[in-house]
Design a protein around this nucleic acid. Structure first.
Lengths: 154, 154
DNA sequence: AATTTAATCTATCGGCTATATAGATTTATG
DNA sequence: CATAAATCTATATAGCCGATAGATTAAATT
């Protein structure tokens, strides 16, 4: 039921890029350091995101990674699907490989599947709606609110 | 992001018990066979559910397991929490152990955490609402609809 | 008391996946 | 050509998931 570190790291890196669009190409090493992510691990993650069409990269001097999609159109769901593979709570609801349930005779009337389909729907309605930009904005708003509180409390 | 087999097995066993309330005490072996669950594995699951206050058991001849809570009041969320431990999408949102996030400076303004909190809320609003009885009813309704369709299509 | 039944406890195991690291290679820049 | 940086290949380690085996305890029946 938990999101992997891979996805968290990926999200952090993307959020960093979204926040610093003026920097152009950013080095893996820079992202790794700023977000405290194991560099080698981040390599694989960014590569996957590139293959997923979310990032572009340039090799060699002056190279690095940059966002391909706009933060306003890039949903967290798309990112998680690339890194996690799927967001189905049970395998018989997988969007990619329809691996049918070994154990249940009739999928259509499986009570568990029915509930899980609702759950999948609820998850999707958040994940496929919230964008990178939304996350940045919400984060900024929260930080601001916190600072204001801090100012007055002293 | 997926629910473990442990939870699926547990749910199936509980649904079986909910459907056959007239049987009284039911053997692990019976549940294992009817639901095609590895018996030894099911043992541990039922034991956990008993310790979670959901089942009662009787040892010895004529013994077995039976539901302690009523199917109408037993939510799927409660079951999953017992078997899965938690339903938090990220560890820093865990309900049990508040394991604070290693890597993020300020939890309150972490964009990822903010979205995941919404997700957790959405998940909970389903899981803590749907009961065993609901699942049985929905399953029956789906099976009925399917059979009717079948009747007319011939 | 003896026997049978069935849950409970203890221990273990293979395999898979998540996380992480190392080194070699390719591609581009100047 | 030298340098910089991504990319590829390979590996390691740990931990957890799913599953199994055997011994033990508790209750019921005879």
């Amino acid at each position: 039921m938990m999101i992997s570190k891979k996805s968290i790291y990926g999200l952090k890196a993307l959020l960093n890029l979204a926040r610093n669009s003026e920097r152009g190409q950013v080095l893996i090493a820079t992202l790794a350091e700023e977000e405290r992510i194991p560099k080698k691990f981040l390599e694989a993650i960014l590569l996957a995101l590139k293959n997923g069409g979310v990032l572009s990269s340039r090799i060699g001097k002056g190279g690095g990674y940059s966002l391909l999609a706009s933060p306003r159109s890039l949903t967290i769901g798309r990112i998680i699907r690339i890194l996690e593979g799927d967001m189905a709570p049970v395998s018989c609801l997988s969007e990619t490989e329809h691996s049918r349930c070994d154990e249940c005779d009739d999928e259509a009337s499986c009570g568990i599947r029915l509930v899980m389909a609702d759950l999948q729907q609820a998850i999707g309605s958040i994940m496929d709606t919230v964008t990178l930009e939304d996350m940045v904005n919400r984060s900024d708003a929260a930080a601001l609110a916190r600072n204001n509180l801090f100012d007055y409390s002293i």
